[in-house]
Write a protein that binds this DNA or RNA. Structure first.
Lengths: 147, 147
DNA sequence: TTTGCTGCAAATAGTTTGCAGAGAC
DNA sequence: GTCTCTGCAAACTATTTGCAGCAAA
């Protein structure tokens, strides 16, 4: 499917609908997030855009991420070491598989947590709204290298 | 079971075995982490110990957490907003249920992720070592308040 | 023309580090 | 007595904010 080819349009529309202006910088950020299969860091986004906009500011990246996040169009993955990675391609909760060597982050297709979620809700009396599931391991690439 | 009553002893022993000295400050930190059912923040630990050790330093809390974490005896739960919570009672991965209102964190008993883990490993060719699963929602207490 | 957006630089907050003295063993 | 640990303060890093000029609509 070509879903992620339209992700940028969806996000842009949502921005417009909420009264936000579409600047070239903002557009560039959205485009990178929309096809963010690699789950980029803020710095990655910044570096990539700086090629086209040498005056680009990190603050602008941060501000736009906050904005788009508030519209629910990106998923933020924060880690204990303080690093953040972003997924604007699938902004809803889904499992990630993370290589602890090369830091690659891959999406996992199993979206069958609903059963678990109900179980947890029943056991704890919580109204569950959301979840996050990460698997940590070593990717086949890094296994082969075996430094 | 009274497992968590012995958690502090287990951690202390592990520290000793690895050649670390047991100072009163370190002991106090371990004791709090060992029965950390509330999943305290660094500040919580600091504040609590400061009552008995007025000269206690935040840096000491941080240094000891790093140390004990390196021995695998506490689980660190980092969140996108940069906050960290610690679980020294069950230092192995297990699901948490988190109230987004009062920030309470409750352990969940379902430890049946093994199946999922195998599934993910097969699909991605990763060697899965670890995982993290959080459910976010509203606890019954906060539901009742309904501000 | 009117807002909101950007870039810069300074501010902020959480965590880490250097160092000298204190204390566990 | 040795060597690690602690407390303090300074350093550090990632992120946020104030402000003046710029630009989208």
């Amino acid at each position: 499917m070509a879903d992620h080819k339209k992700r940028d349009e969806i996000i842009i529309r949502k921005l417009r609908d909420n009264g936000h202006k579409i600047t070239p910088q903002r557009m560039a950020i959205v485009k990178i997030l929309a096809k963010s299969l690699g789950h980029p860091r803020v710095e990655d986004i910044y570096d990539q855009i700086k090629k086209d906009f040498p005056t680009m500011s990190l603050a602008t990246v941060y501000r736009n991420i906050v904005l788009i996040k508030s519209l629910g169009e990106i998923l933020e993955l924060g880690f204990p070491d303080g690093s953040n990675r972003y997924d604007g391609n699938k902004p809803y909760p889904h499992p990630h598989v993370i290589c602890i060597k090369c830091k690659k982050i891959v999406d996992s297709d199993l979206d069958s947590l609903e059963g678990l979620q109900k179980e947890v809700a029943a056991a704890t009396n919580f109204k569950i709204l959301n979840h996050r599931l990460d698997f940590f391991g070593i990717c086949s690439n890094c296994m082969a290298k075996k430094v």
